[in-house]
Computed example of a mutant assay.
Amino acid sequence: MSPVSSATDDENPLPLAGPHWDIWEVSIEGGGLERAPRGAAWVKFDGAGHASGNFGCHEFRAKADIKGDTVTVRDRETLPGPGGGKNCDARHLDYEKDVQRVLNGKLKITTNYSWVNLTDSRGSKLVLHKNRPVPLVGSEWTISKLDYSDEEWGIGDRAPGIGRVYFVLGEDGTFHGSFGCNDYRGKADVGPETIKFSQAEPITDKRCSKAVMDTEEEVRKRFDQTVGYKLGPDWLTASTYPYHNLAIGFVAGAKPKS
């Protein structure tokens, strides 16, 4: 559901500049709305004539002039995302093409609370949802999915009753968290495109069901390698770096601190 209609909000009629916006849905030339794949795309307008974000697989920057109820996006430059877009599947690439098609030229802005429509002259539109970004370091990242090659599954699909699986990256080059049964600690060298995880060791000695402990071991493997990561406003994807067809990774989410 995308409750986007009028251009009125008593406190801030057109609050486009400032927050990160998830590009939630896209519609091409009046067609039906297509929901974004997870972690697909986002944009930020700085209010000073610039925009930046991610189309879904590749990052971008552009000039963006906000005047009244329109924004004009021009001089757009596409940049390689983490892994050069190699971690993207066909669904993400297709969504990216649609976003690129709309996020260009003069766009009409309509708002409703935390939702915004950007609509071009042909009736194509992007539906944006306000999202306050969370920092990579210091946030508690809950792992929701694991992946291997082109297969992806929920963290509890193969281990019903598993505990919450999460990790926190520290400023001191370490990480800590829980892998579903036991708590872990290790090293994490965070770079602009990669995280080098190493020395992941349990700091508790609990015994859980075989399914839970098997899944815990699957998680542990992902924290014993260098991963290329992709960071959105409240999501993180990571996979073996350099990427190959037997790569393993995970999908995680975090909530902004209140």
Rank of each mutant, 00 (worst) to 15 (best):
109 I>C: 13
78 T>L: 02
54 N>H: 11
187 K>C: 01
112 N>H: 15
206 K>H: 11
88 C>V: 04
180 G>Y: 12
189 D>V: 03
194 T>W: 01
12 N>W: 06
10 D>H: 07
61 R>S: 09
76 R>C: 00
61 R>H: 13
22 D>T: 06
59 E>H: 06
149 S>Q: 11
75 D>I: 01
128 L>T: 12
246 L>N: 10
241 Y>G: 04
30 G>F: 08
42 W>I: 03
10 D>W: 12
85 G>N: 05
23 I>M: 01
64 A>T: 07
41 A>T: 06
213 M>H: 12
253 G>D: 04
202 P>F: 00
192 P>W: 03
187 K>Y: 02
220 R>K: 15
102 V>K: 05
190 V>K: 05
78 T>Y: 01
74 R>W: 00
26 V>L: 04
3 P>L: 03
15 P>D: 09
146 L>K: 09
128 L>K: 13
222 R>W: 03
206 K>E: 08
218 E>V: 08
68 G>P: 08
71 V>S: 06
196 K>Y: 03
55 F>K: 02
41 A>W: 03
220 R>V: 15
242 P>D: 09
49 G>A: 13
79 L>G: 09
86 K>S: 13
75 D>S: 15
112 N>Y: 12
196 K>W: 00
234 D>H: 06
41 A>L: 06
67 K>Y: 02
155 I>G: 15
45 F>N: 07
226 T>M: 08
203 I>W: 03
200 A>L: 12
98 D>K: 07
16 L>H: 14
101 R>D: 03
56 G>V: 03
60 F>Q: 06
204 T>H: 01
73 V>Q: 06
93 L>D: 01
202 P>Y: 01
69 D>T: 14
163 G>S: 09
255 K>W: 11
1 M>N: 06
51 A>E: 02
127 V>T: 14
214 D>N: 14
237 T>W: 07
6 S>H: 12
121 S>L: 00
85 G>I: 00
180 G>M: 05
69 D>H: 14
193 E>D: 12
222 R>A: 09
31 G>A: 02
58 H>R: 05
